[in-house]
Simulated scan of single mutants.
Amino acid sequence: MHRKKWVALLIVLVVFFAGITVEGLAGGYEELADNPGFAWEENIVYGSGSSKIVQLFVNGVISGEPNATGMPSMAELLAEQLRRVEEDELVKALVLRIDSPGGEVVATDELHTRLLRLKQLRDIPIVVSMGSTAASGGYYLATAGDSIFANPNTLTGSLGVIFSLVNYSEAAAKLGVKQFAIKSGRYKDIGSPARPLTEPERQIFQSLVNESYGKFVDVIAKGRNLSRQRVLEIADGRVYSGEQAKKLGLIDEFGDLEEATRHALSLSGEQDAMVVRYSDQLSISKLLFSLKQHWSNPDPLGIGNILQRQSSPRLLYQFIPSF
């Protein structure tokens, strides 16, 4: 298998450096999605038998945005893996390994919904294993688990919502830069970085934050079988250690990924099972697409992306200690 991958890579490099245009070979993700090469390879980690326990990984910031090469976002890839679990009748349990500070509210909520749907459709246990960090949106996903394992030092918590705005109005005034907004309504340019935020605008943003926060509190209360009042007491945005989280009822047991997987096996009712992971198969089409995106990128330094992020604030279930 490794030899095939290296051969595929060699072919890609020969094609690329021979001057064959990538534009004609890779039209976009939509075309690649139907390509047989755009698939997940199932790797057996250990175990035996016909039944399976799948380990899925949530690593890094939870985002619905494509990565720098234009390939699908982490949320899209994880959703596709969950779809595969749904369709595989041999899967008897799922272990979700989370090492994430959280991320976008919408992407996080959509993945959480997919996890709940999996439990409803397949009635299989979900065991969560938290790594070094499972904060904010990372913990939001963890609440879908039937059991949560963590390390005593795992950073968890940061239960809340943040919405950040950049404002350069004072700097612009010193430089003599002015921005004029021709708008259809009073709040059409709400959050503009070129002028101070008004109190009515602040209240509007706060109402959005409060709404998302209320959803987060409800998710924790239901997922962890805690009263809403108790959740409100502990969900003040601070981070907790695994030790503190256990005392608060936010996690169930101390243990690593292997211990969480053994617990998933016991919940599945199976005597033996293969522990499997999904890995993205290497294909020529995907490599060509990635090369195309890289070499045709009009903004190699990512400045445009930074400016776009600044001008497009979003609600975040994310632990952000500094900017």
Rank of each mutant, 00 (worst) to 15 (best):
G60S: 11
G60H: 12
V61Q: 09
V61P: 03
I62A: 01
I62Y: 02
I62Q: 01
I62H: 02
S63M: 10
S63A: 13
E65F: 05
P66K: 14
N67E: 15
A68Y: 13
T69D: 12
T69A: 13
T69Q: 12
G70V: 10
P72C: 09
P72I: 05
S73C: 07
M74C: 01
M74Q: 14
A75M: 09
A75P: 12
E76T: 15
L77P: 01
L77W: 00
L78K: 08
A79M: 11
A79C: 03
A79R: 13
A79Y: 00
A79D: 11
A79W: 00
A79P: 03
E80T: 13
E80D: 15
Q81V: 08
L82P: 10
L82A: 05
R83I: 00
R84M: 10
V85C: 01
E86N: 11
E86Y: 03
E86I: 05
E87V: 04
E87C: 02
E87Q: 14
E89P: 09
L90F: 06
V91G: 06
K92Q: 10
K92D: 03
L94V: 12
L94H: 01
V95H: 07
V95M: 07
L96S: 01
L96P: 02
R97H: 11
R97S: 05
I98H: 00
D99L: 03
S100E: 05
S100N: 10
P101C: 08
P101N: 08
G102P: 07
G103R: 03
G103V: 02
G103Y: 01
E104K: 04
E104S: 12
E104L: 02
E104Y: 01
V105W: 02
V105I: 09
V106N: 11
V106I: 13
A107P: 05
T108L: 03
T108F: 04
E110T: 09
E110P: 03
E110R: 15
E110L: 11
E110F: 02
E110M: 09
L111H: 04
T113R: 15
T113W: 06
R114I: 04
R114Q: 13
L115D: 02
L116G: 10
L116S: 08
R117K: 14
R117D: 12
K119V: 05
K119I: 08
K119A: 07
Q120Y: 08
D123L: 03
D123V: 09
P125E: 02
P125N: 12
P125L: 11
I126D: 01
V127R: 07
V128C: 13
V128N: 02
M130S: 13
G131W: 09
S132K: 14
T133P: 00
T133A: 06
A134K: 10
A134E: 04
A135T: 15
S136Q: 06
S136I: 06
S136T: 10
S136C: 13
G137T: 04
G138Q: 06
G138V: 03
Y139L: 15
Y139F: 15
Y139N: 08
Y140N: 05
A142S: 14
T143E: 12
T143M: 13
T143G: 11
A144N: 10
G145A: 15
G145M: 12
D146V: 07
D146G: 13
I148V: 14
I148N: 06
I148H: 07
A150E: 04
A150W: 02
N151A: 07
N151M: 09
N151G: 02
P152K: 11
P152M: 06
N153I: 04
T154L: 00
T154P: 07
T154E: 05
G157C: 10
S158Y: 14
L159H: 15
L159C: 03
L159Q: 06
